[in-house]
Design a protein around this nucleic acid. Structure first.
Lengths: 215, 215
DNA sequence: AATTAAAGTGAGTAATCACTCATTTTGAAA
DNA sequence: TTTCAAAATGAGTGATTACTCACTTTAATT
């Protein structure tokens, strides 16, 4: 909760929000994530935030605008850098093998992703129902992020470390694999006994021997 | 729609439902899948089904009971056989390689899965919010299905065709890979230009070279 | 201290929600 | 044809919904 607030501060402080406005956002994220957008009432969010219900509608014209104003900046400001960050290090040949790169990338981002999980959950829950979010997700992920990921893939392909499958397919398979692990681990079956480090290593091994060219 | 109705007939005819009861189920599936459970109103479902709203509550005590009575039998009667069906053929060594088996399995089930997509969508949408469904899913998938899948995996491992990773990890990685493809293809980014057969083949190749032992 | 615009309030609104129930319709057995 | 239980109805229920608005509080500037 304290680290979550740091994340939110980092994200929203440029807009210089008041204390109550921040509380509304925190309460909305918590409620949307727990019960889903449609099942969350504005009165409940107001109560949890400790503000009057009218205060929410002073800053957001509609309930949907509250949802979008939470998820949209996360997509544009946070998720893209999260995925693409430090990719220049790869291009500078800081990692000799794809395996090393994958391990470093996943380890670096895991904690952050866990803290983001409530919002990520909201994002994927609502993308099928909110065309506005779906469009934004498509513009961001399918175009920008995939382009950056593909550059890295092509770099490794030129080094002969990856199979000759088209970069967009390799990107899809690699990214969905990591997301599938996180989804299984933290959303679908969180109560199972997981050996996190071990399963991450197995996931990397699986990805690698799927896309690693055999000598 | 016609094939969907066949599926539903096959699923529910043993209960000898009336015409209106079937229409309620079809309308509920359509509405839940399009708007999500919480955003779907019983009045809308009744209207779409061409029945009075009271008729719904004659057969289902609550709205949630309607949801559960749709998803639960699908999980127990349909999804388990869908995954496990014909596994004896594998154990009878009808498929020499894992690759052949995977291809046959995916091809056989793809059409059926597509027709089931609305209900599968509802299932995964609501599992995070409905403890009743989550428990049932856990009992079914984590215990029954995984056991069957693991048997097949162990069989191939004994033939020396799979790596020595623990069967439950291989099962997780293989199943989530297939589901990830279907989710990307039909839920998340359905408007992209997909070459289905080609991407299926790439997915199989990816899975195989991830779990296939190198000679 | 006075001014003022923004922030915050909470009672109020019409609409919609899931659900009830007294009544009518249906369809198959007697 | 009569009977009758199950099926179906739809007007009606109180609760809750997203949202409004006239008003009060806050806080920074003059």
């Amino acid at each position: 909760m304290t680290e979550e607030e740091l994340m939110l501060q980092q994200l929203f402080d440029e807009d210089k929000l008041t204390d109550k406005q921040k509380k509304i956002i925190v309460a909305a994220i918590e409620t949307f994530s727990e019960k889903g957008y449609a099942a969350s009432s504005t009165s409940e969010i107001a109560k949890k935030a400790g503000v009057a219900e009218g205060t929410i509608f002073r800053h957001y014209k509609t309930k949907k605008e509250l949802l979008v104003s939470i998820v949209a900046p996360l997509m544009t400001k946070f998720i893209a850098p999260l995925v693409v960050k430090d990719f220049n290090k790869v291009l500078d040949r800081e990692f000799e093998t794809v395996e090393e790169f994958l391990r470093a990338t996943i380890e670096n981002r895991r904690d952050l992703l866990l803290r983001m999980l409530p919002v990520v959950k909201i994002m994927f829950q609502e993308i099928p129902f909110q065309p506005e979010l779906r469009e934004q997700f498509f513009d961001l992920v399918a175009k920008n992020i995939f382009n950056s990921v593909e550059k890295v893939i092509i770099g490794y392909q030129e080094k002969g470390l990856l199979v000759d499958m088209p970069p967009e397919s390799i990107a899809r398979l690699t990214i969905t694999n990591i997301l599938s692990f996180l989804f299984s681990r933290y959303v679908l079956l969180p109560h199972l006994d997981w050996d996190d480090e071990l399963e991450i290593e197995r996931t990397i091994q699986f990805i690698m021997h799927g896309i690693g060219k055999k000598e």
